[in-house]
Design a binder for these strands. Structure first.
Lengths: 189, 189
DNA sequence: TATCGCATGTAACGAGTTACATGATTTT
DNA sequence: AAAATCATGTAACTCGTTACATGCGATA
C-alpha cells in the first residue's frame, strides 16, 4: 500500500524521502502510517522496478538529498492500481477493542483509566482535524488550472473527504468511549 | 496481538485451533482478523514458550484434534499484558481512504461506483452487528456465577461494548459515504 | 460420487516495526 | 557549545498474507 502512496505523492511533484515522510505525516498518516525506514527502502525498490527515478541534488549545500521523480511506468502503475476498485472491506485491527473484549476480569478502575486516556487522545485528534479543516477552508486554491495540470480545487474535495472521515471517526470514538465508560462505571467491583 | 487473543480465548476454555478460528470469526474478527495459518503457527509457538499445553484428543472419531489449554504461565502473560494500558493511538490503516485521497484524477463514475459498493458492504455489516446485538439481548446469561468462575454477565458488558463499536463504526462510515458520494456527484466531469 | 464442512498444517513471500547508525546544518 | 532539525540509510525481526497440501466424515 505504501508503494502507491509514494507513487501518488510523487505524482504531484518530485520529492526526497525526507520530504515524503513529512508530507505523509501531515496527510495520509491519519489513514496510513509509515516509518521513515520503510519509506526509504520502498523508494529504492520502486526505483529498481523502474517506477521512480532519483538524482542526488548537488546544490550549494552538500547534503545528500536524493530527489525522486515518478516515471511514465510509475504513473501507469498508479493509474492501474486506482482503476481496480476495492471490492471488500479492509480487515479491522483495533488494539483497544481487543483489550476491552478481554477486560471483564480486570480491575474496573484500571480499565476506566485506560479508556479515559484514550478519550483524551481521540479528542485531541478531533480538535486537530477540525483545525486542519478550517485551515483548508481559509486557504482555497483560487488559481485556475492549466490543461494537463492537476486541478487543485478538485483534489481538495477528495483530500477534504479524508479529513472529514478523520473528524467523524474521532467524534464517533469519543461518543463510544463516553457511553462505554458510563456503562463500566455502573458495574460493581 | 493475535498471541493475546488466543490466550484470552483459551482463558475461557480449552479449544482446538479450528474452534478458535470459528470463535474469532464470530467475535474478535470484527476488530482483529486472523487467518487459520497464522492461528496454527502461533498456537505452536505459544506452546513452545510454555504459555499453552496441547493434547491430541483421541475420541471415537479419529480426527486429529489438538486441544489447547492455557497454562498458569499463559494466564500470567495475559494478565501482564492487560495490566499494561495502551498509552497511544493505534496507527490507522484504511485502504479506502488511501485510494480516495489519490482519486482526484480518476473517472468520477468509477469512484462513485467504488464508494457505492463500499456503502452496501458497510450497511450489510451494520445490519449484522444490529442482529448480533439483538441476539445477545434476547439471551441474557441469568445463571449466577460461582466464586472463582468467570462472571458471564460482567463479560457480556465488555463484549457488547465491542459490538456497539462495530455498529457505530459502520453507521458512521455509511453516513460519511453518503456525504462523500453527494459531494463527488456535484463535481463536473 | 461429488461436494461441503471439519481439521491441520507448511512454505514462500511481502509488509511493517524497532533498533542501530551516521553526519551535516541550523537554532538556541 | 549543545540541542534540534535535516537527511539518509541498514539489519534483524516479527507479523501477516497467499498459496499449497492433505485427509476424514457427513451430506446431497
Amino acid at each position: 500500500m505504501l508503494k502507491y502512496i509514494l507513487l501518488g505523492m510523487l505524482n504531484y511533484m518530485p520529492m526526497t524521502g525526507y520530504a515524503l515522510k513529512r508530507q505523509l505525516d501531515g496527510s495520509t498518516a491519519y489513514f496510513w502510517h509509515a516509518y521513515h525506514s520503510q519509506i526509504y527502502t520502498t523508494l529504492r525498490k520502486l526505483e529498481e522496478q523502474g517506477l521512480l527515478e532519483s538524482e542526488l541534488e548537488d546544490g550549494e549545500d552538500h547534503l545528500n538529498r536524493r530527489v525522486y521523480t515518478i516515471t511514465e511506468t510509475g504513473k501507469a502503475a498508479l493509474r492501474g492500481w486506482l482503476d481496480k476498485p476495492l471490492t471488500d472491506l479492509a480487515p479491522a485491527k483495533e488494539p483497544l477493542l481487543v483489550r476491552l473484549f478481554f477486560s471483564g476480569q480486570r480491575d474496573k478502575a484500571a480499565v476506566l483509566d485506560e479508556l479515559r486516556l484514550q478519550r483524551t487522545l481521540r479528542e485531541q485528534k478531533l480538535a486537530l482535524f477540525q483545525q486542519m479543516k478550517t485551515m483548508y477552508d481559509d486557504n482555497p486554491p483560487s488559481e485556475k488550472h492549466a490543461p494537463g495540470e492537476i486541478d487543485l480545487a478538485r483534489e481538495r474535495v477528495f483530500w477534504m473527504a479524508t479529513l472529514r472521515m478523520g473528524e467523524m471517526t474521532m467524534a464517533m470514538y469519543v461518543a463510544w468511549l463516553d457511553e462505554t465508560i458510563e456503562k463500566i462505571e455502573g458495574l460493581e467491583g
